[in-house]
Simulated assay, not measured.
Amino acid sequence: MPAPKVWVTGLTVGAIAVVAALAVQADKGPRPTATARPSASASASGGGQPSPTASAPAAVPDASGTGRRIVYSLGLRRVWLVDESDAARRTFAVWPGTVAPDPGSYSVVSRRDATTGSDGVAIENIVYFATKSGLNIAFSNAVDGSSPPPASGTQTGGIRMRKADGSAVWTFGSTGTTVVVVN
């Protein structure tokens, strides 16, 4: 009977050969291709809550003002960064906190590089624009990129987004920038 080392060596060589053969086959197979994003109506009719990976509606909401501004839709849970010509330069879904700002026009009042959110999560790119129920309302992203739901019973005013979107809001939303909140 062969020694155990011979068996292990034989099995290892066989496994490597199988993996190599599968890798060659996979390399010859079809490649994934990018698909077009669904239209705004497809995203809106999908039901449920939009996620930060959901497709973006193209149009800035009606009655959101004019000129350079940040537009936040409570119902769509989405933000638009709008330039001076009223063109959306970026739009993305967000995770709102438990306390929402009232619809209306605000201005960025202050900014903070990093801190800990009221939910205990380390956050960065904090852009404050309103207060409600004693809480500061601000756009931010979690340092680790996560977006955990707020703890039950905890009031939070943070409007969280993916890390890249938080960086874009930080760059766009200097002090004094208009923020328009729509339903």
Score class of each variant (00 low, 15 high):
I123M: 06
V179D: 00
R112I: 12
D119H: 05
A34W: 02
F92C: 05
D119L: 08
T98K: 02
D86R: 07
D62Q: 11
D119F: 06
D113V: 07
T131Y: 12
S107I: 04
A20T: 12
G153E: 00
P149Q: 03
A130V: 06
A56E: 06
V181P: 08
G47Y: 04
V121W: 10
N125P: 02
R90I: 10
A44S: 14
D144C: 07
Q155T: 15
D62G: 14
T33A: 12
P150D: 01
V99N: 12
A58C: 08
T177Y: 02
R78N: 07
F172S: 02
I70D: 00
R68C: 12
G46N: 10
A122I: 02
R90K: 11
V71T: 09
D62M: 08
V8M: 13
S167N: 09
A58Y: 13
K5D: 12
D144E: 05
G10Q: 07
P32M: 11
W95Q: 14
N141R: 14
G104M: 00
K28H: 13
F139A: 00
A36D: 11
F92K: 02
G75N: 08
T156E: 04
Q155I: 06
P32F: 13
L74K: 11
E124P: 13
S110Q: 14
A23K: 05
Q25E: 08
V143D: 01
G47N: 03
A88P: 07
P57G: 06
R68V: 13
P30N: 12
E84F: 08
Y128F: 11
R31Q: 10
A26F: 13
P149Y: 04
K132E: 09
W80A: 00
G97I: 06
V60S: 01
V99G: 14
D27R: 12
Y72K: 06
S110H: 11
T154G: 00
A151M: 04
S167D: 12
M161T: 11
T178S: 10
S110V: 06
F92N: 04
I16W: 14
A3D: 09
A20Q: 04
V82H: 00
W95C: 15
S167K: 12
S110I: 02
F172H: 03
V82W: 02
R111F: 13
D119N: 12
P30A: 14
I137S: 00
L11T: 14
G29M: 01
P4L: 07
L135D: 02
A151C: 00
A122P: 08
G29N: 04
T53S: 07
P30S: 14
A15F: 07
F172W: 11
K5M: 10
D62P: 15
A34P: 00
T156D: 03
A3I: 08
D86L: 09
T178Q: 07
S43T: 15
R162G: 11
P30F: 09
S85H: 15
T35R: 08
S174C: 01
V179M: 04
G104A: 01
S45R: 10
S43L: 15
V8T: 09
I159W: 03
A100C: 03
